[in-house]
């Protein structure tokens, strides 16, 4: 668990990384470069000029995405193994989704019904317990897939990976702060994990936003209330790095969630309780000091009654 971390909302329209960095590592006292991971942007990884213009401090892009692409060129065996793992993860996610649908149908109906709460509430509670069980089973299943993959293919021991890790270790040693940008959460998570970037960096100041913030939580929760295809059930993808406790972050929540739908929000909040479901919209900021969270005004969370409340209220 980290001793100092700041989580932010999306940065495109309301960039506040500069102020966050100044809080954690004031340039006057720590002029070292900021190390940024933009692997979630995939092939756009190098397009970080807007970010550099904003922070006005030296920046090193760790080029995590490009490093993995280089490894794939050199190590076809690892590439094929990762592709097979990717296909397996997709299949497992689809199977989980099938079971999830049944649980969510029942829960939605239980939360929709009105009447004798003395009868309804125990049913809701027990249905949520079953759903917690399903989510936990899925997280364990995915973890087992990763475990088997690592045991068989030993990616950390492969020459191509070790070469990149040595470079990363040097870059991170000089960095004053590590920043994780958003983007594709699976790409970001798996590529950070391949190099054990957070392990190399250690317990030092960290700033993350959007998918970067999601990666630091105990579980990656995928969500969208109005997708053009398929159901709108939030899904657990897999375990995150678990560097921040009891937190589910919801980037772009105003666009992705029907936050006015209190019944649905209540179900969402209770499903992931005791984790704090926090909305990370533009301008949102959550600071962790190793013991407790604090937030800038306007940063909201889902209360268990389905309403939105200020974090800390």
């Amino acid at each position: 668990m980290l001793s100092s971390v700041i989580l932010l909302g999306p940065q495109r329209h309301v960039p506040i990384v500069r102020a966050a960095a100044e809080t954690l590592v004031p340039v006057a006292s720590n002029p070292g470069p900021l190390a940024i991971v933009t692997a979630g942007w995939e092939e756009r990884e190098p397009e970080d000029q807007e970010f550099r213009d904003h922070v006005q401090r030296p920046v090193i892009n760790l080029e995590i995405w490009a490093r993995v692409e280089r490894i794939f060129e050199r190590d076809q065996e690892l590439l094929e193994a990762m592709r097979r793992r990717h296909a397996t993860l997709r299949s497992v996610q689809e199977l989980y989704r099938l079971r999830l649908q049944g649980h969510m149908d029942a829960l939605r109906e239980l939360f929709r019904r009105t009447g004798d709460d003395a009868l309804l509430e125990p049913e809701r509670h027990d249905a949520l317990v079953m759903l917690h069980g399903l989510d936990s089973q899925h997280v364990a299943r995915v973890a087992q897939i990763h475990h088997e993959f690592e045991a068989r293919w030993r990616p950390h021991e492969r020459a191509a990976v070790q070469r990149e890790k040595r470079e990363l270790k040097k870059l991170l040693a000089d960095a004053s702060c590590l920043l994780l940008a958003g983007g594709h959460i699976a790409v970001l998570l798996h590529r950070l994990r391949l190099f054990d970037v957070l392990g190399l960096y250690g317990d030092r100041p960290l700033i993350a936003w959007s998918a970067g913030a999601m990666a630091l939580c105990e579980r990656i929760v995928l969500f969208h209330d109005a997708p053009p295809q398929g159901s709108a059930n939030a899904e657990v993808m897999e375990a995150g790095f678990a560097l921040v406790p009891d937190l589910v972050v919801l980037p772009h929540s105003k666009k992705r969630l029907h936050t006015h739908d209190e019944r649905n929000m209540q179900l969402f909040a209770r499903r992931f309780a005791p984790a704090l479901c926090t909305l990370l919209d533009p301008g949102s900021r959550l600071d962790w000091n190793g013991r407790r969270w604090s937030a800038v005004p306007g940063t909201q969370r889902l209360a268990e009654n389905g309403t939105l409340q200020e974090v800390g209220a």
Binding site: G183, I185, P227
Partner: peptide, 18 residues
Amino acid sequence: LREGLSFLFPGPLWLVYE
């Protein structure tokens, strides 16, 4: 078009949080 195109070419909206 939304339903048709996203059926033929589903995008990564569940996985991308920029």
